[in-house]
Design a protein around this nucleic acid. Structure first.
Length: 478
DNA sequence: TGCGAGCGGATTCCAGAGTC
DNA sequence: GACTCTGGAATCCGCTCGCA
């Protein structure tokens, strides 16, 4: 049964505030706010509580990197007793404060902060406060252990083969979650996730509405992060979106720390516009007679496609993970969806009540993440219900990625032709819109389409041939 | 309802320029 | 020289609208 840790932290912080006669705040070792004391002074408004750093910490639930660096410079990560920190206006710290390191079995797990007042607390008072900090440390360690346990249960559910194995895993997760297990839930898949190490995953506390999270293999060498999210109802997806946004921030930060660009910036610095710019356009065009005409043979290709997708500045292991998990999608296009490593993406499955269908929800979340990575216009956070044809395409077996009909077109030398064909098909075969979308002359478009037909042996005036090529091109992006 | 005129988009053909 | 792209002109085709 999960404990109400938040309430316990609050009581302990209030206890410290009362002991020392000053408002206290509690942050974890990542400087994320866990609780803050509301000490009642005799004044109507205690100006001492209006310190900018403390106010910011309370309002944003965390401290800035600059403040963190300044504090850590006083050795608070190694201290076993109270540490006095003088004010430093240049670091944004306008008031001196006392840091009580919160330790458990010798390891720092958080910090209690007190603004210094005159006269300061006595040694006896600080000793008493440190004993309370010790109880907070035990509580933080207990919570971390409980969270890790849920990770194991969640991973067991998501990696179970099915049948009785999954039923057993679901039963264990249900027991661990308690009564909350019967409420509405969904799953978020964030991929690629930079590390398989559970210690590198964010805590459930730092992800809004998260009940459990764990890492799951993504392809051959990469990782993804699964987040189980509690919802108020299956009709309201806002909590899942908020959680996905928060975890994406963590993922982008982690990839950034590894020297790999995140976010959409990387996606727009190379290559051309998205191949699917016409995806939501009007219905079919004229469908008139056959194209033929002025092709001049099936000789060499331009070879002017977009450049490689391997991130620069990354370690070999990371590059391998990216190659397996992300860049594999960029087999031919140069568009934002696939041009290099455009950062991680998140997929959200359809909400369900209870945990029985968690396996299916996970498949949906994975598929949505896969679609968001392949087609950046769907992301960075994509919901299963919003990925359109990718609901079918992601369900196809891996071997379908190389359909012989589209094979020649997927060669690196013919990236531009493949992109031309895909935009043309996305635009429902309307030459004018396609040429406009690609920024080429319409005659150039006819020339390229003629080359596509020569390479593939398909007839773009035939509906089934069009469907086959369209599916093959989309599938190859996944 | 059927027909024809007008319009606009799609297609084809040809010539020529640029690049490798 | 081969390939690719661009531009102009002619033609085809489907759609809309007015009219009987």
């Amino acid at each position: 049964m999960a404990a109400d840790y938040k309430g316990d932290y609050q009581e302990l912080v209030d206890e410290i505030s009362e002991l020392l006669g000053a408002p206290a705040t509690l942050e974890n070792r990542d400087f994320e706010l866990l609780a803050f004391g509301t000490y009642d002074s005799d004044d109507e408004l205690d100006a001492s509580a209006l310190d900018p750093v403390r106010t910011r910490s309370i309002l944003t639930r965390r401290s800035t990197a600059g403040v963190r660096t300044w504090f850590e410079g006083f050795g608070i990560t190694r201290a076993t007793g109270p540490v006095r920190i003088p004010p430093s206006p240049e670091a944004g710290v306008y008031r001196g404060r006392i840091c009580l390191p919160v330790r458990h079995r010798g390891v720092v797990v958080g910090y209690v902060w007190l603004l210094e007042n005159e006269p300061g607390p006595t040694d006896a008072q600080l000793d008493a406060a440190m004993r309370v900090a010790g109880r907070i440390g035990a509580l933080l360690a207990d919570e971390a252990e409980a969270g890790a346990g849920l990770s194991r249960e969640l991973r067991a559910v998501l990696t179970a083969e099915g049948g009785w194995q999954r039923d057993m895993a679901v039963a264990e997760l249900r027991t661990a979650l308690g009564p909350r297990a019967d409420g509405p839930h969904t799953l978020i898949c964030v991929a690629p996730w930079p590390s398989p190490d559970p210690d590198d995953a964010p805590s459930t506390r730092s992800v809004p509405h998260a009940a459990a999270l764990c890492t799951i293999p993504w392809g051959a060498a990469a990782q993804s992060l699964a987040v189980l999210v509690r919802l108020r109802s299956t009709a309201v997806g806002a909590p899942a979106l908020a959680a996905a946004g928060r975890v994406l921030e963590e993922a982008e930060g982690a990839w950034g720390a590894l020297g790999i660009r995140g976010g959409t910036e990387a996606a727009t610095t190379e290559g051309s516009p998205a191949p699917s710019g016409c995806g939501t356009g009007t219905r079919s065009g004229s469908g008139t007679g056959a194209r033929g005409g002025s092709g001049k043979g099936a000789g060499g290709a331009s070879g002017k496609g977009t450049r490689g997708a391997v991130p620069r500045g990354a370690g070999a292991a990371v590059a391998a993970a990216v190659a397996a998990g992300v860049a594999g999608a960029s087999r031919y296009t140069g568009g934002p969806g696939t041009a290099g490593f455009g950062g991680p993406a998140a997929g959200i499955g359809d909400p369900r009540v209870g945990l029985a269908e968690l396996g299916a929800v996970w498949q949906e979340a994975r598929a949505a993440a896969q679609a968001a990575l392949a087609e950046r216009r769907l992301g960075p956070v994509a919901q299963w219900r919003g990925i359109g044809p990718y609901r079918l395409l992601t369900a196809l077996p891996p071997e379908s990625a190389q359909d012989p009909a589209a094979g020649p077109l997927l060669a690196p030398a013919h990236r531009e032709l493949a992109r031309t064909a895909e935009v043309y098909l996305d635009c429902a075969g309307q030459a004018g819109r396609t040429a406009s979308e690609l920024g080429i002359h319409r005659q150039t478009l006819y020339y390229r389409l003629n080359r596509v037909e020569q390479l593939t042996g398909l007839d773009l005036d035939d509906g089934e041939d069009r469907l086959l090529l369209h599916m093959a091109l989309k599938r190859a992006r996944l």
